[in-house]
Design a protein around this nucleic acid. Structure first.
Length: 143
DNA sequence: GCTTTTTAGCCCG
DNA sequence: CGGGCTAAAAAGC
């Protein structure tokens, strides 16, 4: 397994790769490896606001429910936000269950959980809400 | 399987 | 702006 860091105005973001598949994305972590260049370019382009979606293979764990939520989140269009509640209604579940699943998301950014906000606040984010704000800002969303 | 714990929410006063 | 409430998933047994 290898990983590569990318610099942002919020700190470093670290992407883990295992034989061509992205397995994990972490915040505030610096490392010195080089991952598959095709993937690296996509990440870099996204962070510069030049790319709106990803096209690389990933490897996932997680429960059936978590995968359902993550998949649904991926369908939220670039630059848009939805609330935990809206998603919960789509899956006939509760807002808090959505929060739990997003917290367990191993691939933030790829599964854009930063586009999911609470009804009256921004909600939470792994690695700090500063990241969430920054990612939304990249997408041209003022929160 | 059942019970307890935890939750990145919500709503109402 | 608290507090209490709640459902539902995950962890524990």
């Amino acid at each position: 397994m290898i990983c590569q860091s990318f610099e942002t105005e919020c700190g470093y973001i670290c992407v883990y790769e295992e034989n061509g598949h992205v397995t994990q994305i972490k915040f505030n972590e610096k490392c010195f490896g080089k991952i598959d260049q095709n993937i690296a370019i996509q990440i870099e382009d996204y962070l510069q606001g030049r790319r709106q979606s990803f096209n690389f293979p990933v490897k996932l764990g997680g429960t059936a429910f978590q995968k359902k939520v993550w998949t649904l989140v991926r369908e939220i269009p670039y630059g848009h936000t939805e609330t935990y509640k809206q998603l919960s209604e789509k899956l006939k579940t509760s807002p808090r269950a959505i929060g739990q699943a997003l917290k367990a998301n191993p691939l933030p950014v790829y599964f854009p959980c930063h586009r999911v906000v609470a009804k009256k606040s921004i909600g939470g984010f792994t690695g700090g809400i500063e990241w969430k704000k920054m990612l939304l800002k990249i997408e041209g969303c003022n929160f």
